[in-house]
Nucleic acid binder design. Structure first.
Lengths: 195, 195, 195, 195
DNA sequence: GGGTAACCGAGACGGTACGTCGGGTCTTCGG
DNA sequence: CCGAAGACCCGACGTACCGTCTCGGTTACCC
């Protein structure tokens, strides 16, 4: 992140071990129970080294999530917009089902709500890339006539992703596949309608 | 909350002072910086007394929010569904603009993501009442023909409230009034369309 | 020492346990290896509690020494000045032979050389009482004619106690009993001579 | 000191800069506040280089003191023993009045009380040379009849130097010139007297 | 006079302890 | 018996130095 010291001399071993320890502990104990001290001990790394490269536990976790979230943020383009959306959103939801990643994501999300410094990083790492590729896919759909040219992409974004986060913060069950389809259909219909 | 001791002998003065101190400190320093010790000191109350009546800082805050959230959770029924939704959702959003309440709400929301005990209370206090009266209003609209009888109320809930929370957790700007109208129109169109 | 908090509510158990742990650890590991954390752990006491009542490890040790240095600082008055001096100085020297106390005393002495705050306490606790009773005994000796009325008590103090500290800081062997007698005879002769 | 590497290739610049930085920092901040890191930074030298040539901060300081203590350890022989003693002891005392050297000397003395490895070096560098030349001067005095042949040189050493160290560790004011004369007269009288 | 072995600066590393903070429990005393 | 006050144990914080180590770079010796 803010890499004040010389990043060329950084120990790759410590770097990896820290991220791994962070995620592992998160899976085992839950985000809130994880401490920088614990990560350091588990990784066989000194606290100083962690604080040298990251400003806080949240920043470590964010990088760990990024590294672990293997599936791409990008959309595929099969020509079927609804299917592509479903695939991508399922991918996002699946991050919230694996215990370790889920705990880490909820943790950084929660911490991001309280710490504006971390908030920016959360936005940049977790949301921006997905939003960008979402918008790109939508624009492509408009060019290909799959989507009305006058459709409001921002509204579509809100209508599609909103339900996931709504249910997360309200502690309602997360959408399953079929429900996701209903949402996608409804949202596309809404932005496709003539005003 | 879990009121183990005899609530009849509870000091109303301490009770009020605690809730007030909690919100005040939240406004001044932000939720994360508020501590039980700080609340106790500010309220002129002992820590023991706080722990006697609430299990955690989050529970205090939740009660303080409840008490301070003056506008009703219920919907008015002017006969214009879109207008009623707009009014109610604006009310919810306005809670997120006042510094003190916003900080408190974000705080308990964030903490709720990490603490399943608090999560239940958050759901019960913050979300359930609003969802219930939302559904009630929707059903009334269906009876009055303002809304298609086959409209899926759950989907409507997700489409309408989702954008707010999506933008909150993604650290995007919250919707303003006109944008809210677009969302409401889109969501109602979506659930009203013939399947 | 600086007892900022209310000393009436102090836990006697923690107090005693801390002093005991300090001395024990000193005996086992040597003063330099003893840490506040170690004392706290050994005593079953929190670091906070130690820092509440003492400003530093040195202050804890000083009090521990005081409590443990059972033999009185006062001189006996058998009527034989040289014998009384010998007895008292042997007592002082014996503090420097028991491993635990020796280590603690050397430690606070060393630390006192570096920390003027502690220096004052070292002087007040370790030296002042012994110097005072030395001078008192000398004055009594003068009244009883055992010592020349014009003998310089300060010089006597320096000549008598100096050798001990000289040998300590110069890392020479400490005086044994017979050598002590030589010193005492020489010093008394010196201050008793007509100028 | 333990010069494991090839001393011929040693950088004289680094050597000098380190010793100078050590003493300067000592004067500015006091021995206890000086760190190897601080010395390295001030000297523009790497920590590794310091640890290559000295085992510890104390060893650096000891060498720095040795280099800076310009006045000779040797006694002059004017034929007046008391005067020669006074001159030499004043010289020793003057080391304890210059802020930088005083702080360094107190520091190594203090550290020497705790660290037997350093203790040996302290004895060898600071005390042994002075004691040796003291004894030599005393023996010369005996040959020249200035001092009784049967005078005990060890006792004399203790009586003369003792007061300085006694006052140092007891945090009493150090002797001034006139008082020094009293001590010298008393000590010489004591060892000169017929037993 | 080119190769190489050493010292050098810089500074990252695993550690240990620091002194502080807040959590949640417990004790004392007054009303 | 509740409440204010606050001491207590505990565990984590973020920092400071320790002494070790790995880097390039730059001598200075040896072939």
């Amino acid at each position: 992140m803010q890499e004040s010291p010389n990043p060329q001399r950084r120990s790759e071993r410590s770097h990896r071990a820290t991220l791994k320890a962070a995620l592992d502990l998160c899976a085992e104990q839950g985000y809130a129970q994880v401490t920088v001290e614990g990560i350091a001990a588990r990784a066989g790394v000194s606290k100083k080294t962690i604080y040298r490269w990251w400003p806080s536990k949240g920043a470590v976790m964010l990088e760990a999530i990024d590294e672990a979230a293997l599936q791409p943020t990008g959309f595929s383009d099969t020509g079927d917009l609804a299917a592509d959306l479903h695939q991508q959103m399922s991918g996002t939801l699946s991050l919230l089902t694996d215990a370790g990643i889920r705990s880490a994501i909820l943790g950084v999300l929660a911490e991001g709500l309280q710490d504006s410094q971390l908030a920016g990083q959360v936005h940049g790492s977790l949301f921006k890339p997905r939003i960008d590729s979402f918008k790109e896919r939508m624009r492509k759909a408009q060019q290909q006539g799959e989507l009305a040219a006058e459709a409001d992409v921002d509204v579509a974004l809100d209508l599609l992703y909103g339900p996931i986060w709504h249910r997360l913060v309200a502690h309602l069950p997360l959408p399953d596949g079929p429900y996701l389809s209903k949402i996608i259909d409804a949202a596309l219909a809404a932005v496709n309608r003539r005003a």
